[in-house]
Computed example of a mutant assay.
Amino acid sequence: MPKFSWHTDPVPAGLAVRQVYGFLFVPDGRLLIRLDGSKHTLPGGRPEPGEVAYADILRREAMEEVTVDIDDPHYLGYQCVNDSISPYAQVRMAALISCAHPPAPDPDSGRTYRRLLVNPSSAGDLLAWGETGYLQATAAAEAAVEVLGLPAGGLPPTGEL
């Protein structure tokens, strides 16, 4: 069973980054959650050959999976995954959605994902990633206010984008 740990420092040299996921916010402060059936997750995925910039990976994945454009992403940290083979990193970033396009099929899976806008305080519960998930969601909510300049309270109710 893999073990997960959350780190806010840069990914150490030599630790492979296998995934980049984003906490993506709309200007009113709500967070976009990708729905895959009944599973709640963040937009993101694996780097493609030649991709090394986390921001570029996240921009591509955000467009492919949930058809949104994002402003410059802010690095939050990484989750270290220690599995039976070798440890690797899953990078987490926060960004503001600058434009939402009509939903379209993901070119990789052919599925069109639902896009749910939620209060960031509910992200830890919805993602169901355990303690490290709550730490990530807290870091994202803080960055939304402190870095992205989004409102912290009085958010509209949950809805679809």
Rank of each mutant, 00 (worst) to 15 (best):
K3N: 07
F4G: 00
S5A: 15
W6Q: 00
W6T: 03
P10V: 05
P12R: 05
P12K: 04
L15I: 06
L15V: 03
R18A: 13
Y21W: 09
G22E: 09
F23K: 04
F23M: 07
V26F: 12
P27Y: 04
D28Y: 04
D28K: 11
L32C: 08
I33M: 15
I33C: 05
I33L: 15
D36W: 01
G37E: 06
H40K: 01
H40R: 06
T41E: 10
T41A: 11
R46I: 12
R46E: 15
D56T: 08
I57D: 08
L58N: 10
R60L: 12
R60C: 07
M63T: 03
E65M: 14
T67A: 15
D69N: 12
D72Y: 00
D72C: 01
H74R: 04
G77V: 01
Q79D: 04
V81A: 05
V81I: 15
N82M: 11
N82A: 12
S86H: 13
Y88H: 15
V91E: 01
R92E: 06
H101F: 15
P102S: 13
P102K: 08
P103G: 14
A104T: 04
D106I: 08
P107Q: 04
S109H: 03
G110L: 10
R111K: 13
R111A: 13
R111Y: 09
L116P: 10
N119Q: 08
N119F: 02
S122F: 06
G124D: 13
L127V: 12
A128E: 14
W129K: 14
T132H: 15
T132Y: 14
G133H: 09
G133V: 09
Y134P: 00
A137V: 01
T138H: 03
A141F: 00
E142V: 12
A143H: 01
A144Y: 01
V147K: 13
L148H: 03
L150A: 08
A152N: 11
G153P: 00
P157W: 00
T158Y: 00
